[in-house]
Amino acid sequence: MYRIRLFAIRHSRSFEWIYKRLERAMIALDPLLGKIGYDRVERPVAFVEKCVKTVLFDCKMCGQCVLSSTGMSCPMNCPKQLRNGPCGGVRPGGFCEVKPDMKCVWALAWDGASRMKGGAQIHTVLPPVERNLEGSSSWLRVSREKAAHLREAREKRRTAIADAFPDARANEPSAAPLAEEPAQAVKGSK
């Protein structure tokens, strides 16, 4: 597995590309997943995710995957589970302080990030892992989060008029509507 992990980091650029596609697919699937119920799909998706990512990245199913910010080198493989870069104990040659036979996860991460388009993401300070999310699907979480983000942006555009004309809305609500419009009521919408 260690070898496959090293392979994934060497090809961080390709995996970044694949991950971007996967992310888009997951976001597109959000309405469907929402209909089936995220609760229902959680366990099967988590199972598939675990199988795939364990082989590729030695995934530990922390539930808060940050591979895109760590050069495709999983930080949960760091014996100290550091999320923000190497510790001060890295051995000569870039080997781990705790497991001397293993390359430092973070030395590999910076290396992987240097080949990635979005490699600069490694500079972002990441929060500690929420341990109660361990074992859950990170893919579904990304799907929910990004879809929620998009919904929020849409919502902002939709309510912009209502927010800008509060008096009109108070007197004549239909002049500055806030409620979601049914498709039939709007010309040109499907």
């Binding site: 923000n84 870069g85 001060g88 104990g89 051995r91 000569p92 030395a107 910076w110």
Partner: peptide
């Protein structure tokens, strides 16, 4: 820890 690997990334880590 400026004097241990990965040398090139130590200043970047300081920035972080």
């Amino acid at each position: 820890n400026p004097c241990i690997p990965p040398y090139d990334w130590r200043p970047e880590r300081l920035a972080k």
